[in-house]
Design a protein around this nucleic acid. Structure first.
Length: 426
DNA sequence: TCTGGGGTCCTAGGACCC
DNA sequence: TCTGGGGTCCTAGGACCC
């Protein structure tokens, strides 16, 4: 049996742990750059403010309804998320975190207990130990557990167990509500007369594969109680590690793009080292706004792929190759809105792939040890930055003024991850 | 008149998720 | 004027191989 545990209004709930004044008020958490709403309290949902509403559209309502706004504080949310996962691990070792605010777990029921009772216990424990309300949905497949979770969240007790025969429920559920069916596919399903999850589930596999794809066909299987979404290997390395940001205001100069790319690459490299991984290469890209000239109205992006001589996590080596690639992508006169870096082909530092044909043994050994030395150096810098604040030591190529820096005007404190920002009790 | 068949690897793009 | 960031998987088509 699967259970899906999903935190209610997660970012809002995190802020509320430390700021009791947010209770019972409409609260909005804003995306990076304070661009749009990405998490809403129930009170804000009741005001009919939609997910993704641009902040400037929300502004006129703030005074009128007493809305509280916060910039997103991912350091805080990441830490709270970890605490929730730790609690789940006390219930079962088979915890599969799916996103920052939810996890699939596989449950073997203790003697003399029902799934419902067990769900209530999980829910109460997380609420008491971490302070975050969650919904718990039980079902035989992940896709059904998602649906059970949606139902759970609408109930006062926050727990729902999918009955063995789920047809009744699926017949009442719009197909666009099903996990794995996005906007595009939903539209195409509607076009052939399929509106309800129940109807979708009873379609022939061959038809779904032919008219759509294997993913859609798998989703239908899952609704029939047949597991088709594989169990994730939680120890597997990720496919990629990235960092990207929209700029606080448009960027025109190559110099500033280089600063931003340098900053983002440094941040992503910290993630690499934290998770003891090396990257074989990286993709760097810059994204621009539509031009003023109406003939060239399209915005767009340009990217370049670089490969490192050796898999590496050393910021210096990485910056050298990335900053070299950037001038070729830059076109003068464009207004740039965003830049990003993606590391790919990751490997564990505990298992380095050596070169097979190591003809020039000496130079290669030197390169390797140089690489290792650099990585060690940056690990030390990471520790200093952890201790004294994240920008204590940084590469000068990231710039000092940072005119491109994102806006975060409503940021809460890093209550749990920075000694200087601990809560004080008077 | 008439010119094969089977495979792999890589990349870009599309679709989805939270 | 002003709309985020970080991921995953699959497919089609081109290049290349024998």
């Amino acid at each position: 049996m699967y259970a899906l545990i999903d935190c209610n209004n997660f970012y809002v709930s995190c802020e509320r742990i430390f700021d009791l004044s947010l209770e019972n008020k409409p609260v909005a958490i804003l995306s990076n750059n304070d661009g749009c709403v990405i998490s809403r309290s129930n009170e804000l949902k009741a005001l009919n403010v939609k997910m993704g509403t641009p902040f400037f559209q929300l502004k006129p309502l703030i005074k009128k309804h007493g809305i509280e706004c916060r910039s997103s504080n991912y350091e805080l949310y990441g830490d709270i998320s970890q605490r929730v996962m730790n609690v789940l691990n006390q219930f079962t070792p088979e915890v599969e975190p799916y996103s920052i605010d939810e996890a699939f777990v596989r449950i073997k029921l203790p003697e003399n207990q029902s799934y419902f009772e067990y769900g209530v216990k999980i829910r109460q424990t997380i609420l008491q130990w971490v302070g975050v309300p969650v919904g718990v949905g039980f079902a035989s497949t992940k896709t059904l557990a998602k649906i059970a979770n949606h139902i759970a969240k609408k109930r006062a007790d926050g727990v729902f167990v999918m009955p063995g025969n789920s047809m009744q429920i699926l017949n009442d559920l719009g197909v666009e509500e099903v996990w794995g069916i996005g906007r595009r596919i939903a539209k195409r399903l509607h076009a052939i007369g399929i509106y309800k999850a129940g109807n979708f589930a009873s379609q022939e596999q061959s038809l779904l594969k032919k008219k759509f794809n294997v993913m859609v066909a798998r989703t239908a299987l899952e609704l029939n109680g047949i597991n088709a979404v594989p169990v994730e290997d939680v120890t597997a390395l990720p496919q990629s590690i990235s960092c990207s940001r929209s700029f606080g205001s448009p960027v025109f100069e190559l110099k500033h793009l280089q600063e931003a790319v340098s900053d983002y690459a440094s941040k992503a490299a910290v993630k690499l080292r934290e998770s003891k991984q090396l990257a074989a290469g990286a993709q760097v890209y810059i994204q621009y706004y539509p031009e003023y000239n109406p003939i060239y109205r399209e915005g767009g992006f340009r990217g370049a792929t670089v490969r490192f001589e050796q898999p590496t996590a050393a910021t210096g080596t990485i910056l050298n190759s990335l900053l070299n690639a950037l001038p070729k992508l830059f076109i003068k006169g464009r207004r740039y809105k965003k830049a990003g870096v993606v590391f790919f082909e990751l490997s564990s530092t505990e298992n380095v792939q050596e070169q097979l044909f190591n003809f020039n043994v000496n130079s290669n050994t030197v390169a390797n040890s140089e690489n290792e030395k650099q990585t060690e150096l940056y690990k030390t810098l990471d520790e200093i930055n952890k201790k004294f604040g994240s920008n204590t030591i940084f590469n000068l190529s990231s710039g000092i003024e940072k005119p491109w820096k994102m806006k975060r005007d409503h940021l809460s404190k890093r209550y749990t991850t920075n000694w200087n920002q601990l809560m004080t009790v008077k």
